[in-house]
């Protein structure tokens, strides 16, 4: 997704190596995706719903 938009930066975070980050974002299961510190997406979703959830704060509405 980062590759498809110059606005997007994507971090793959190894949760066990960064317990402080995992705690901060209350990661209780993986994969868990956090977008702009606000939107949380649990687990894996199909592409369409995943993109819409990830972009819900940035849709310009």
């Amino acid at each position: 997704m980062a590759f498809a938009s110059p606005q997007i930066t994507a971090y793959a975070v190894e949760a066990t190596e960064y317990p402080d980050l995992a705690r901060k974002y209350q990661v209780s299961g993986v994969p868990k995706t956090v977008v702009n510190d606000q939107v949380e997406i649990m687990g894996a979703l199909p592409e369409g719903p995943f993109i819409e959830q990830a972009l819900q704060l940035t849709s310009g509405k």
Binding site: M1, T9, A12, V13, A15, T33, A54, L55, T58
Partner: peptide
């Protein structure tokens, strides 16, 4: 997308 987006994927 026209605003900066930071995604963190925990694994």
């Amino acid at each position: 997308v026209d605003k900066p987006v930071t995604m963190q994927v925990f694994t």
